[in-house]
Amino acid sequence: MDVLLTQSFLTSLIFGAVTAGIPLLLAGLGEQISEKAGVLNIGIEGMMLFGAYCGFVAAYYTGSFWLGYLFGGLGGMVVAALVALLCIRLGLNQIVIGIALTIGFEGLTALLHYVQFSRTYPRLSPVPTLAIPGLSDIPVLGQALFNHNALVYLAVLLTFFLAWLFRNSFIGLNLESAGNKPAALDAAGVSVLATRSAAVLATGFLAGIGGAYMANVGAGLFVPFMTNGAGFIGIVLAMLARGRPVWVLLGAALFGISLAMTTALQVAGINIPTDVVQMLPFAMVMLVLVIFARHSVLPPALGLPYVRGER
């Protein structure tokens, strides 16, 4: 048992938890923005996957990780634009369209990957890391927490920025009312459709970056269907966080650890089938839902299209 407490094990566990948790954090924050505005974004899995694909291809051809993130975010926004057009403009069923987009981009990215790379899976070079001076010298924690790709620090900063934005700015207020009482927002002279569209596009951008990070940094390559439910975990995070970004961060850390267990246990030389470990994050989700079920809160207008003048 003492092998579990060695330094290298702890470092690799926490390092892996951060790497696995960042896509969940970005997806969860993105979903939170959508849900605040009253859009249930089931298609977020498709956004992440298309972001992962676009991000990987961009990074593969340009060699730049930052361009990878940018194109990943843009890829996610393409899917989000479809949500905005079909669900918000036309008021189509958000669940049906969400399922369609998830299935569709699963298939499409697999096709695109096949057309481009046939059955090979090219790898990217290792990601550049930014060691934070001073902090990264702390034993065990330093290398695990403060020696990551710069995007990791940006994502964490974004959490606090969003917390400030939701609470202290008119943008946060607009989002909140688009989800709680869209008619009130309309009466105040702000377009509900524009607010919701902007929220969904922001979701797509964040989820797409999350996907790109997952492909380029987490795995170093693109595999079809690679998000494997991460988008849905993001939805759970947003549900349980009750509109507070910091809770998404905590949740992402929790699920990141359970995802990182697989590789960490292998480092420690403990061999249990990966399937057992793969159950961990989902079992964790259900456990958390059972314990905190009564505390999860969703906006009243969630999932309902807004039609002016309709009751």
């Binding site: 079909l86 036309l90 008021g91 189509l92 069923n93 049906v96 369209i97 399922i99 369609a100 987009l101 299935i103 569709g104 981009f105 699963e106 298939g107 499409l108 697999a110 096709l111 096949y114 079809p224």
Partner: peptide, 21 residues
């Protein structure tokens, strides 16, 4: 690839919702 059927299914759902609208 077999995944083409997935794309077809998604398109079906999409157009179903659109035609309904």
């Amino acid at each position: 690839p077999q995944h083409y059927v997935l794309v077809l299914v998604a398109l079906l759902l999409l157009f179903l919702a659109l035609v309904e609208y």
